[in-house]
């Protein structure tokens, strides 16, 4: 006997729900939504990639202008389609029944980035326009995200906002230690992080798109924590160390109460890194001898702590 039958017999689910699960289990209906979509996407990728490469190789300047024009035309067409399919704005979550609606909205955002990057690169305007372009993109993406209720576009908006204040990290920069030598950019990171955390609370307070809260919090904490850590390393100041320890404790304590493991873990991570830095600063080379015992014991102690309090995060 299937579990759904048992749930139905015990009156925990209704007949409609039971029938639906039965239909999935006996495969009387099978959804190929993801399979068809993948087929379509790979097809579009092959075709557009092929045509673009062909144009690039054979039409030089005319090809570039044609590519820009076709990108613009596609952008306008998809945007028109999005408006046609969308429901009116609501502060609550809006579900549009069309299967591909969310992807159309995301496609608009990606086309916008592609088109303007192409234009800037082709006309050699990248250095002049990168900041204003990022800022305009931020406004556009935030507008699209709220109007059409799209978390993926909100993520693009936050990324564009970070870029417009100069916060970008490329893998190459990271390898070369570029992120550490950002001079005073960590202030931007801290301010932007705090702003995003604040927005997440305003979101809930005002009841506007409550489901955007975790996205804001994720980016907010990541920017705040990385900014604080870079600031601490760059300045080497005890003030920052004490402040970071307090912030780490505060974040951990708050999300312990809200029972959200990932954010609690972010707080723990900040605290642990800063605490170790403080130990290293006070003990110097002796820290390495202490580290032999300190790391295994604290890490395993942390595991014991989390596991013995597993009920705290049972909903996660």
């Amino acid at each position: 006997m299937g579990i759904h039958k048992k749930l139905f017999d015990e009156g925990l689910i209704e007949r409609g729900q039971y029938n639906y699960i039965e239909m999935i289990n006996d495969k009387s209906k099978v959804s190929v939504f993801y399979e068809l979509r993948s087929l379509l996407y790979v097809g579009i990728l092959f075709f557009t990639g092929g045509v673009a490469y062909f144009g690039y190789n054979h039409f030089t300047h005319v090809g570039h202008l044609l590519a820009m024009l076709s990108l613009s035309a596609t952008l306008i067409f998809v945007l028109y389609k999005v408006f046609k399919l969308s429901h009116p704005f609501s502060a609550k979550k809006v579900i549009v029944e069309h299967n591909y609606f969310d992807y159309f909205v995301l496609f608009v955002a990606l086309l916008w980035i592609s088109l303007w990057t192409y234009i800037q690169l082709y006309f050699g305007l990248l250095e002049i326009l990168i900041r204003p372009f990022s800022f305009v993109s931020t406004l556009l993406f935030f507008g699209l995200a709220y109007r059409f209720d799209n978390t993926a576009v909100l993520v693009l908006g936050i990324t564009a906002l970070a870029a417009s204040v100069g916060l970008t990290v490329s893998p190459l920069d990271w390898i070369n230690g570029g992120y550490v030598s950002l001079n005073s950019l960590y202030y931007s990171s801290i301010v932007l992080g705090l702003a995003l955390i604040l927005i997440s609370y305003v979101t809930i307070l005002r009841g506007i798109k409550n489901h955007f809260r975790s996205t804001y919090l994720h980016f907010g904490y990541l920017l705040l924590i990385s900014g604080l850590l870079v600031a601490e390393i760059e300045t080497g100041s005890w003030g920052f160390i004490v402040m970071n320890i307090l912030i780490g404790v505060l974040i951990s304590f708050y999300h312990w109460k809200t029972r959200e493991f990932l954010f609690f873990f972010y707080g723990n991570l900040l605290f642990y890194i800063v605490f170790n830095h403080a130990l290293y600063k006070s003990l110097g080379m002796d820290f390495f001898i202490l580290g032999l015992y300190h790391y295994p014991l604290t890490l395993l102690g942390y595991i014991v702590f989390i596991v013995s309090n597993k009920k705290q995060f049972s909903d996660d």
Partner: peptide, 27 residues
Amino acid sequence: GVCMIVCALFLYRLLKNKNTGFVTDRF
């Protein structure tokens, strides 16, 4: 790429209109 797009659209239309046991909507 063209074959894949045509195939996806054809299947989408076919499965939408015929009762084959496969559905094109998300479950």
